[in-house]
Design a protein around this nucleic acid. Sequence first.
DNA 1: TTCATAGTTCGATCGTAGCCGAAGCATTGG
DNA 2: CCAATGCTTCGGCTACGATCGAACTATGAA
Lengths: 228, 228
Amino acid sequence: MKDGPDIARIAALIGDPARANMLTALMSGKALTATELAAEAGVTLQTASAHLAKLEEGGLLHMRRQGRHKYASLASDQVAETLEALMGLAAGTGHLRTRTGPRDQALREARICYDHLAGDMGILLYDRLLAQGWLTDDPEFPVITDDGAARFTTLGLDIPALQGARRPICRACLDWSERRSHLAGGLGQALLDLMLVKGWARRLPDSRVIRFSPTGKTAFHRAFPAMD
Amino acid sequence: MKDGPDIARIAALIGDPARANMLTALMSGKALTATELAAEAGVTLQTASAHLAKLEEGGLLHMRRQGRHKYASLASDQVAETLEALMGLAAGTGHLRTRTGPRDQALREARICYDHLAGDMGILLYDRLLAQGWLTDDPEFPVITDDGAARFTTLGLDIPALQGARRPICRACLDWSERRSHLAGGLGQALLDLMLVKGWARRLPDSRVIRFSPTGKTAFHRAFPAMD
DNA sequence: TTCATAGTTCGATCGTAGCCGAAGCATTGG
DNA sequence: CCAATGCTTCGGCTACGATCGAACTATGAA
């Protein structure tokens, strides 16, 4: 009867609408304050505080006090992945009730997933990196090839620094809209940062949507071409 | 605020202990009757009936009437995957409260995940298939090579029949105990069936545990050797 | 037909968890 | 020091949903 871990405990944590909204907001990867999350969830600060305490106690969030602010962020990539899996299910089993509005369309095209690029563009990036042989294709932890390391360095990334970090540099992450893999981990984050810094794309305010400019797309295709 | 699909709806479905127990039981891959599930969840038949209705309405279960019995099974591989993801989280964030008993140990070694082999043995199988070059290493949908097809046919599988089915023949599935991939999909199911039929292993009653016999393990290593 | 088993529907009960108002700490800035 | 802002704690209200007993329907067996 009691096979495996206590799945109900954390599913119940995610199952409350207010908490689910908070978690979804945190999928943007940014750490948010309690007040911001309260607004996001549509509840008062008191109830938000209670929710945050439960989420931290449950191991889903990581809290950091900074001055008189309290910042919350997802506890790990694993949490983000689980949320994406749930989104995939919800998108699929939703009785066509989730008609895809224009906002939703933009989400499918390019969005931030925790801290890296997801959606059509995220998958495209991952495919291109594989096609060029800059990454080996592991189902969970791809590895950077020598070719790839050289290329990333040319683009301005500090690969040794990334490799020194505790966090896995490469990680495959499943996409809820496309049900395919895209690149997460330190490298995924660094690449997205790069694109934002170079002005290829920008984040829409208060949303997970990432909008590529026409010139940005061109630059993307030149930097990550389809084949050798 | 309302980014993406309604994640709370289905998380709440999974979040009830009774329903979570039912879903966990169904991870065995077998279709179970309402009465069996009621026993599994520790509730009366009436409440079980209500839960099953909700789970079906929510798109997590697929129901099939057969005579005066009503069989429930997971609606899709995707549901099973999401449950595994939740188990991974629950195992990790559990405050050391889930001390690994002997039963748990057996689960980690070899268990059934929906309808295919998971745990240490599942990962070992997947690695060996890759090492032999019988499968290409795709993060989500590996492909059977010609070598592999020949090998599987020798073992007694009907590859063309599997390829004809609607279901994806190969699929990588993430393991909650090991956080690595193992083989799901039609091929994963067929291989597990094969091992059970050949008597290499057997299922423990009322559990997801799969026990390999000593001779079975030997046969396994001979059929799927470490390197060429 | 009659009986037994499987499952459903209804109604009532009861807990729990979400919610907010108000008051209480804590940190920063003047 | 005081005032303002960010967050927490407390208490009480409310509502939703899980649960079960009892009565009802449906299928199968004798």
